[in-house]
Design a protein around this nucleic acid. Structure first.
Length: 482
DNA sequence: TTTTGAGTTGTTCGA
DNA sequence: GTCGAACAACTCAAA
C-alpha cells in the first residue's frame, strides 16, 4: 500500500463537531484518507463514567456528527471498550499512520492520553494533539510568578489581556473516505432510556448536535444577549444562553461563542462583558481542574476536610426529588429531573440549601448533578460545588448562606418559575408562593394546598438550618490552612 | 522582599 | 421602608 493512501485516525472525544475543530482540520490537511472514530469507554473514567442524562445527549450528538460526516463523504466509526485498545485495534486494521485528537482536561482523560501516546509510539504512529475544548492552551494562562491562578478576577483579566481567540474556521466540505471498517450500531449502545422512558422532557427541551448548537447560539445572540445583565438571573425567562450542554460535548467551540457574542453585541457593552465573563468561568474551572486533579474528590482548601457533614438519606432523597417543602428548591430540582438542566441562579440556591441548610456534603450534590445534568462537566461541576460549599477557589465566605425564600422573592417575584415545576402550588398567589408554610389557612384552602399533605412541610426550618450551618463552619480549625 | 489592594452570585440586624 | 454595617480573617496577585 502506497503511503499516500494510508489513512489517519481522527479520534473525537469532547469535541463532537466539524466546524472550528483543530484536529478535524489537521487530519483533513494531511491529504490522506480519514477514519473518524468515537469510543464509548465506560472503564477508564471510573466513578466519572457518563451519567444517565449525558448518555441521552451523547446519543443525539453522535447521530448528528455521523450525519454531518456522511454529508462530507465520510463515515463515523463507533467502537466500545477501553480506549487505547480500541484505538490500537483500529490503527492496526487500517494501517493508519497517525492519530489526530483534542486535548482533554479530566485527570482520567489526561492519563489516557499519555497511555495512548506511549502505545502509539511503540507502533511508530504519531499522535497530534489540538486544543479543541478551551479558549486557551491549558498551561498558557499563568501568573507573573509562572504559577496557576486561584482567584477568578485576575485570571479573567489575564485572559482578556491575551490575543482574543481566532475567528472560527469552517468545517471541511469534503473528507476523504478511509477504508471500510466495522462499526458498532449506535442503537446497540442503548444510550437512551426505554423502560421507563424518562427522557420525554429532555427531548422537548433540547436539540443535541452541532446544528442544534448553532441554532441556539444564534437565538441567544439575537434575543437575549442585549438584556443579559438583567434577565440572566430570572429563571422564569430564557435569559441565559443555554449553551452549556452544547459546549460540554464540544458541538460548538468556545471561540465561536466568543466571536458571535462580540460581533453581534458591539454596542451592548455591559451585557457582553458579563456574558464573556461567564464563558471565562468555564475556562477558569478547566484551569483549576488542570492544576488540581483531585478537585472532583477533595476540598481545595484542606481545612474543610473535617467539615461535620451529616448522613441523612431521607433528606438527600427529598432534595433529589424536589420534595423538600421549599418551593424554590423543589422547582429547581424538578426542572433538573424533567429537563436535564437547571437555571444557573437556581443551581446556587439548591446547592447552598443542600450543603448548608441540610449540612450534606457537596460531593453528594456533585454526584447527583453528574447523573442528571445534560451539561455535566467534571471541571465546572466540581469547581462550582466547591465554590458554593466555601472550600473552593475564591470561595464565598462561610456565612454567605442563601435564603431560598428570599432568593425566590428576589428572582422569581411572580412565582411563575415555581408554578411551572411545582404544580401543587399553581393556584397559590405570589405573596406566599415562596413561603407556603406562612400562608393563612384560608389562603391555602382557596389554593387547594394542604401543607404536609398535597405539598411537603419544610424538611428543615430556614433559620434553624442556617444557624446549624454557621455553627458547623465555625467549628472548623482555620489554623494552618493548606 | 515587602506591601497593598482586592476578592461572582448574600443575609441579617439595627438605626 | 431603606441603608449601612457586621459577619473573619486570609490569601492571592501584582507592584
Amino acid at each position: 500500500m502506497a503511503n499516500a493512501a494510508r489513512p489517519v485516525v481522527l479520534w473525537f472525544r469532547g469535541d463532537l463537531r466539524l466546524r472550528d475543530q483543530g484536529a478535524v482540520a489537521a487530519a483533513v490537511a494531511t491529504g490522506q484518507p480519514v477514519v473518524p472514530l468515537y469510543v464509548l469507554d465506560d472503564e477508564t473514567p471510573g466513578r466519572w463514567r457518563l451519567g444517565g442524562a449525558s448518555r441521552w445527549w451523547l446519543d443525539g450528538s453522535l447521530r448528528s456528527l455521523a450525519a454531518d460526516l456522511a454529508g462530507a463523504g465520510s463515515q463515523l466509526v463507533l467502537r466500545r471498550g477501553e480506549t487505547v485498545a480500541a484505538l490500537s485495534g483500529l490503527v492496526h486494521e487500517t494501517g493508519a499512520t497517525a492519530v489526530f485528537a483534542g486535548v482533554a482536561v479530566e485527570p482520567w482523560a489526561r492519563a489516557l492520553s499519555e497511555r495512548l501516546e506511549t502505545a502509539m509510539r511503540q507502533s511508530g504512529v504519531a499522535v497530534h494533539w489540538h486544543r479543541t475544548v478551551s479558549l486557551f492552551d491549558a498551561d498558557a494562562i499563568r501568573t507573573q510568578s509562572n504559577g496557576p491562578y486561584s482567584v477568578y478576577s485576575p485570571f479573567a483579566r489575564a485572559c482578556f489581556a491575551r490575543q482574543p481567540p481566532r475567528p472560527p474556521s469552517d468545517a471541511p466540505a469534503r473528507i476523504l473516505a478511509g477504508p471500510d471498517c466495522s462499526s458498532d450500531d449506535l442503537n446497540s449502545w442503548k444510550l437512551t432510556p426505554t423502560s421507563p422512558d424518562w427522557a420525554g422532557g429532555l427531548r422537548e427541551s433540547w436539540m443535541p448536535g452541532e446544528g442544534g448548537a448553532r441554532v441556539q447560539l444564534r437565538r441567544f445572540v439575537a434575543d437575549a444577549l442585549g438584556q443579559y445583565d438583567g434577565t440572566r438571573n430570572v429563571p422564569s425567562v430564557e435569559g441565559t444562553s443555554r449553551l452549556s450542554p452544547h459546549l460540554h460535548f464540544g458541538e460548538i467551540s468556545a471561540g465561536e461563542v466568543w466571536h458571535a457574542a462580540r460581533g453581534a453585541a458591539a454596542d451592548t457593552g455591559k451585557p457582553l462583558e458579563t456574558f464573556l465573563k461567564e464563558v471565562l468561568w468555564r475556562e477558569f474551572s478547566m484551569h483549576l481542574l488542570w492544576h488540581h486533579p483531585r478537585l472532583p474528590e477533595e476540598p481545595l482548601r484542606r481545612e474543610f476536610g473535617s467539615m461535620p457533614f451529616r448522613q441523612d438519606r431521607a433528606a438527600l432523597a427529598a432534595w433529589r426529588r424536589g420534595r423538600t417543602g421549599i418551593p424554590m428548591v423543589d422547582a429547581g430540582m424538578r426542572q433538573l429531573w424533567q429537563t436535564g438542566w437547571m437555571h444557573n441562579r437556581v443551581r446556587l440556591v439548591v446547592a447552598s440549601f443542600l450543603v448548608k441548610h441540610l449540612l450534606i456534603s457537596w460531593q453528594e450534590g456533585e454526584s447527583w448533578f453528574w447523573d442528571t445534568l445534560v451539561d455535566a462537566d467534571l471541571a465546572s461541576n466540581s469547581a462550582n460545588w466547591q465554590w458554593i460549599a466555601g472550600c473552593g477557589a475564591d470561595a464565598a465566605p462561610y456565612f454567605r448562606v442563601f435564603n431560598p425564600a428570599l432568593q425566590g422573592a428576589k428572582f422569581d417575584p411572580s412565582g411563575d418559575y415555581v408554578r411551572r415545576f411545582v404544580p401543587e402550588l399553581t393556584r397559590l398567589g405570589k405573596q406566599y408562593i415562596h413561603t407556603p408554610w406562612d400562608a393563612p389557612e384560608t389562603v391555602l384552602a382557596e389554593a387547594g394546598v394542604r401543607v404536609g399533605e398535597t405539598y411537603p412541610r419544610p424538611i428543615v426550618g430556614l433559620e434553624a438550618g442556617r444557624n446549624r450551618a454557621l455553627a458547623a463552619y465555625r467549628s472548623l480549625d482555620r489554623v494552618g490552612a493548606g
